[in-house]
Structures are given as C-alpha cells and as structure tokens.
Design a protein around this nucleic acid. Structure first.
Lengths: 337, 337
DNA sequence: TTGAAAGCGCTAACAT
DNA sequence: ATGTTAGCGCTTTCAA
C-alpha cells in the first residue's frame, strides 16, 4: 500500500495541495465543484489527514491532559467522563494523567504542554505542577490550566469547585440538628484546600452551634475505602466515642461503615455516618448514605468548557466558578432521641 | 520569549542540530563531553523537545487509545488505571476513548490511529471498530489492536480475558452446592462474547447438575447499578421466584440487592445474590458480595504490554491470553437448608 | 478561486 | 564523533 497523503489526493483530483487542504478546513474558500472533486478523490482513495502534521504546523495538538490522583475513584471517574464528553464534542481528545498521587508524575503530565502534546491542563490534584522561575516560566506563559479542585496558592488560575466551607457546614448542621454533639470527622489529605475548607466549615458550624470539637475525633485520612476502614477502627479505640462521623468522601464513609459493622456497630442505630460527593454507589448502599452531593458531571463539563475557551483564546469572565452542592439525607444518619 | 528549538540549543552549545538531537536520543553517539554541553545548554535555556515534530518525523505518536464503553464503571476504571501505569512506564501516553456505548464514537476513536494520533488501540468494547474493505483496509494493515474483552468474530487479534465459560460454571456450581435449584441470571449485553460465554457456562453447569434453567429467570440487562435494580424488580414479578440470582457484574448485583431490600427481601436470608468482577466496593457492601473475581489489574497490564510489544514490532506468541479468575465466597449467598 | 512555496521542529541517512 | 541535508505531511501567506 503506497503511502497516501494530501499530495496523492491533489494529483488524483487534479488540483494543488493547497486546494486540497482548503477543501478540508476552509470549505468556503474553494468552489463547491472543486471541493466535491477533492472529497470524492479522498474518499475513493481512503484518505484521512495526518493530524500530527497539521498539529505541528499549527502548534495545536487538539489534546488536553487531565491530571488526576486516581482515576478509579468513583467521584473522579464521573468527572473525567464529563470532561471527555465536552472535549470530544469540541474536537479535542483527552490524555489521561493518572498521577497516583505522585508529584513527579503530575509534573511529567504537565510537561506534555511544553512538549506540545497537549494544549492545556485540567488539574484535579491540589498541587501545582509548575514552579514559576524554576521551570523557566514566568507566570504569564503558563499553559492554559484550569483547576477542578482548588489549587493552593495560585490565585490566577481559573477554578471550578463547590463551596467546600459551606458544604461542610451544611453537613455538620444536619448532624447537629439530629442532636449529635460528639461528632468525629475523617478528612482527606489536608494538603488540599478542599479538605482544609471542609474542616473549617465543620469547625465553624460546630462553634456556631455552641459545640466544641474534640480534636481526638478528627482523623486525617485519604479518599479511599481502605483509609475509611482504618480510620474508623482507630476512632473506635478512642475512649470518648462519637455518635456521628462526618466523612469527607463517600468512599471513606463506605469503608467506615464496613469497619463499624465488623465491630458490631450498626449504622445508624449505634452511630450515624455521613459522606461527601454522592457517588453512584451511595444510594445503593445499605443503609443508603446520607451525603453532600457534588455535581460531578457539571464540574467536569465546566472545567472542560473553561479550559477549551482558554485554549481558544477567551478568558473566562470569573476565575472562580462555584457550583451548588446539595444535602442528601438518606438513611445512614439518625436523630438522637 | 523567543521561540526555542533544537536550533537555539545547537547555537548555544556550539554544535550542529544533529548533535543536539543525538545527545537527547542516542546518547551513545556523542562524546560525553559534548552531550553534557548540550544538556547544560538545554537546561539553562529551558528547552523541551517538541514531541509533535519528532512524532511526525518518526511516524510514532507515542500514544495509545483505549476504547471503553464507560470509564466510570468500577471494573473498567481499574483496568484503565493499570493500562495507564504500564503505558507510562514504557514512555507512552494514553488517550481516553470513552465511547458511551456508541459505535460511532468507537469508530472515531479507532480512526485516531489512521490520523496518526495514536499508534495502537486497546479495545474494551465488544464491537470491532473497523470494517475490512469498507475502511479501505485489508486485514493485514489494521493498526495494532488488542482486545481486553473478547471481540466477536475477529480471531486474528490478540485478546486478554478470563475464561468466562468456566468462571460462570464455577459461580453456578457454588450456588448449586449451596442447594439452589431455581437460579435466576441477570446478564450483560448479549452482543458481547463475554456475556454470552458466561451464559453458556451457566447453562452448562446447570445441566451438569441435572437442573433445568427456567428461561423466564434469565434477564438481559446492562452492566450498571440501575440496570441491576430494574432487572431485579422484573424478576420479583415472576410467579416462580428464584432462590438465588447470579449477576454478570458486581454493579448489577449491587443494584439488584438494593431493589430486593426495597421490596422487603433480605440477602442472603430470602435470596442469595452473586456478582462478577470483584470491584473494590464488593467487599465493603452489606452484605459483602460473593463474586467471581477478575484480575482487573493484570488484565489491564497484559493488554498494555501486548499492545506495546505489538507496536514495537513483536508479535505476541499466543493470541489468547487467559487469566485466572477466582471464586470469592462472602456473605451474599447462603446454603439452603 | 486556485497555486507556488516556505516552513513547523525534528530525525536519520550520509558525508566528513 | 560531528555536521549537512533532505524530508515527515501539512498550513498558510502571497501571488496569479
């Protein structure tokens, strides 16, 4: 099979390569007749443009990379699915940057913009993968980046998120309204702004309610089933037991409920448990999980839309796009009587 | 900031551009001294090679695309995570091809190989996204493809999978050994070989046990929580109720248990439920789900390894790579007494 | 409306 | 060991 490119089509259609190129991407600049001729020739000969060559020429790869700590986390995979959907609809492809929490990998993925493999970055990690100066970059010539989870310390970059402080307050108030006073919390990584904000919201709501937080009941964990399980166990060792546990992710909450069950506690009779995210499984669990829903799909879409706008040269009007959260009261929390 | 490329480094280091190129990719062909000079210059000036240009020249994008019906399905996301891991370790990037079940999208993603955006395809969907002849391709010049889930009808392409027939037999035998005779099954899409194979395994094991399958108890569904829920409800309408339900995915099983609970049935007291896959949540569920574990991570790694070998010109020795499954008996099935 | 021609930044013969 | 040079396949002025 002889290699086929724009040249072969040009020959076949009896036009110049420039015309072939135009026929494909600037249909307006060629007569309908020639365009048809070209398209026919292309179809007949089975031609697909080499996107690499076009990308090199235009310095536009048509790819975006999404840097995400763990793609198998349910909440994350919902988001990335939404990202892919809008990217695809706008002619972009998405490169998967599962960093497994490693900063080095995050930087490698981020570097794909400088090696021209990607035109922009969606950052679902809390670290910023460039060092101004050291990467020989000034802040102006950072590649297009949007954060989907509140990067710490870089105010210039657009971010999409929920209001974590208020979301955690809402969650806490729910527990308080159910009569809980001894409330434990299992956080995510406190390096991330979102976890810190949620903790702040929790403390705020507690103090507004005139309740004191018992610091021994605040466990720092990771967003995973296993971490939830382990954390719950350590909580059970505490001499002062909580009556409710607020978990900063549904996976944590589910792991937590598992551990509780293993140790003979039933939820919500013996202890109330709340999650965060509203992953699809939350509703199906037994008991169905009370949680603060994040609009995962909207977050993903908004990230992608913002990034693509940025790539296409439109600054977003507001850098902080706060999406609404929603308290979902199901059956894992109960009113203390 | 002036545009910087290999030329600038060459100038800065006082060598030719060929030498710069070699310094980066054929370290053996330059003296240590010059190489150091080049690397220093590159570092000082903040240079990263333009991979697009290299790709165009070598016709190797360094990308693979994974076509998958739903990336937010837990089992799938485990697999894709493993794929990403080995791809990354071998210097490849992965393009996400979430097809949402659409054949058209699958073809679009597959076409990324012909437009040179990807060097190969991992197919987690059961449809083959090329039509020999129509895509003006003969079977020889298909791009490198490996299937992670038994594509129907294309024997030539390497596949990685478990032995679905035997896996389903093992599952069925477990149920039978627990005294179940009226066993329902909720399948996945029967267009897929794996679902059909599982069904075949089920029937085989039933007949080996001298039991007859009640066709009314075989429900065709999709691999999702919701589909499991709906299917279980339709099962409950049946006049002859099963004592056990074999689900062809854990998500189906979890959805199924939810529906059962909603209707006042408790698992496993009133009905036994089994899943397939062993997604991380399976163990954490209440009751913990009895299931047939698939080695998701190994499947992903094997797919990626095979594909990359293929891309690098090595034919795999065997086209069918069958990985072991494992029966995991937990608490969602009970012995009939 | 169409075509000629100059690259995009790099790789890899081939020559020195 | 290093340099010269001819492209990879396309886009895009600029001129006809």
């Amino acid at each position: 099979m002889t290699k086929i490119g724009i040249k072969e089509i040009a020959a076949k259609a009896g036009v110049s390569i420039a015309t072939v190129s135009h026929a494909f991407r600037n249909p307006g600049r060629v007569s309908d007749e020639t365009r048809k001729k070209v398209l026919d020739a292309a179809k007949k000969i089975g031609y697909t443009p080499n996107k690499l060559a076009a990308s090199l020429r235009t310095s536009r790869s048509g790819n975006i990379v999404v840097i995400i700590p763990d793609i198998s986390d349910s909440h994350n995979s919902e988001i990335i699915k939404a990202i892919e959907k809008v990217a695809h609809s706008r002619g972009f492809s998405v490169l998967l940057g599962d960093s497994q929490g490693s900063e080095e990998r995050e930087r490698e993925f981020a570097a794909m913009t400088v090696s021209r493999q990607a035109d922009g970055i969606i950052l679902m990690s809390h670290r910023f993968p460039f060092t101004i100066g050291e990467d020989a970059l000034s802040i102006e010539d950072l590649p297009p980046v949007v954060s989907g989870c509140e990067v710490s310390g870089y105010d210039g970059i657009p971010a999409v998120a929920i209001d974590d402080v208020r979301a955690a307050m809402d969650a806490t108030r729910h527990l308080v309204s159910y009569g809980h006073k001894d409330i434990a919390v299992i956080t995510g990584d406190l390096d991330s702004t979102s976890s810190r904000d949620r903790l702040e919201g929790f403390r705020g709501a507690m103090s507004q309610a005139g309740l004191t937080c018992n610091e021994d009941l605040i466990i720092r964990a990771e967003y995973s089933l296993h971490s939830g399980e382990v954390s719950a166990e350590s909580l059970l060792l505490n001499k002062k037991r909580p009556t409710a546990i607020l978990c900063f992710s549904d996976e944590i909450a589910l792991g937590c409920m598992y551990a509780l069950r293993q140790h003979g506690f039933s939820v919500p009779q013996d202890m109330s448990v709340m999650g965060f995210d509203n992953i699809p499984f939350a509703k199906y669990f037994s008991p169905p999980l009370t949680t603060v829903a994040q609009p995962a799909e909207d977050i993903g879409s908004a990230c992608a839309t913002t990034l693509l706008d940025l790539i296409e040269g439109n600054q977003p009007e507001n850098l902080r796009n706060l999406l609404p959260h929603k308290l979902l009261i199901r059956e894992s929390t109960r009113r203390l009587s």
